[in-house]
Every structure is written in structure tokens, then in C-alpha cells.
């Protein structure tokens, strides 16, 4: 069955072989090379990898991290900054988490677009890596307990 190795990404370690994105660089940069055979040009892919590098180092990413960091504060009463409370504030934490994800995913998205490229007619969705989702957490009740 062709879809078994493109698993959902709910678990920290997706089962089976992982997504295409996870093994892309192995398919493109590893494997046996035989001198007398030619290889197709991968110029487009390489260019887009470099684009991804720019995204990682961008000020935009830093600002998103900072915003997420500041948001951690805003979710709490302005006076309370103790560490246990910060760690216990699950509702606040999950907001920050989403922000970190957004910043971190911009890289992957760029590469995914690169691979998708001009070849959209066969994208049936199975192979497209999904956005990671945190399991639902009972944020509000946890937070009440902490703040009580």
C-alpha cells in the first residue's frame, strides 16, 4: 500500500518511513552514483533550498519568536511572573507553542512548495506533510488551578 509511509505527524516519532519531506535529502543527495550514467538536473530544488536558508535567518522569524515570548506574559496577570506559574500556565503555553510552530514551519513550507513545484495534478493530499497539531489540552481548568 503506497500511503503507509507517509504517516500523519501527531506523534513525535511518526511511524514507518516518515514523510517524503523527511527523506527528501536522502533521495536527492544519497544513494549510489555511477559515473557513466547521467543524472537529471536538480537546479530548481537547489535554488529553493537556498531560499529556505534566508527564511531561517530572517529578522521576521526573530520577531515572531519575540511576539510569542511576549504573548506568554500577556496571557497572565501582569504582576505574576514566577517560574512555576509560567510552567503551569498551560493555556498561555499553548498560545506560545502555536507561534513557535508558525515561525519554525516557514522553512519546511518553502521546501514543500519547492517539491510540489509545477506538478500539482497528482497531489492527492496523502503525501503532503500535515501541519503538526498539538493534542487538545484542558488548558482552562489547569490554569484556574494554578491561579487559585
Amino acid at each position: 500500500m503506497t500511503t503507509t509511509m507517509y504517516a500523519d505527524e501527531v506523534a513525535p516519532c511518526p511511524p514507518r518511513a516518515g514523510t517524503l519531506y523527511d527523506v527528501l535529502e536522502l533521495i536527492l543527495d544519497r544513494g549510489m552514483v555511477i559515473d557513466v550514467f547521467v543524472r537529471v538536473s536538480l537546479v530548481g530544488i537547489e535554488i529553493l533550498k537556498i531560499d529556505a536558508r534566508i527564511v531561517v535567518a530572517s529578522v521576521d522569524t526573530y520577531l515572531r519568536f519575540a511576539e510569542a515570548c511576549n504573548r506568554l506574559d500577556l496571557e497572565r496577570d501582569s504582576g505574576s511572573t514566577t517560574i512555576p506559574e509560567l510552567l503551569g500556565g498551560r493555556a498561555a503555553k499553548s498560545v506560545g507553542k502555536r507561534k513557535v510552530r508558525q515561525a519554525a514551519e516557514s522553512v519546511g513550507d518553502t521546501v514543500r512548495k519547492a517539491v510540489g513545484g509545477d506538478d500539482d495534478e497528482d497531489d492527492d493530499g496523502n503525501e503532503r506533510p500535515k501541519k503538526r497539531r498539538a493534542p487538545a489540552r484542558d488548558g482552562s481548568s489547569r490554569r484556574r488551578r494554578v491561579e487559585a
Binding site: 503506497t2 509511509m5 517524503l20 527523506v23 527528501l24 533521495i27 536527492l28 537529471v40 538536473s41 536538480l42 530548481g44 530544488i45 517539491v115 510540489g116 513545484g117 509545477d118 506538478d119 497528482d122 497531489d123 503525501e127
Partner: peptide
């Protein structure tokens, strides 16, 4: 032939 998603997946599969 180019490094398109479908062909990468076919190769890998």
C-alpha cells in the same frame, strides 16, 4: 524528467 513530487515518491516507493 525533473525532481517533481510524484517522481520522487515513485522512486522512493
Amino acid at each position: 524528467l525533473r525532481a517533481r513530487r510524484r517522481d520522487l515518491m515513485a522512486h522512493q516507493e
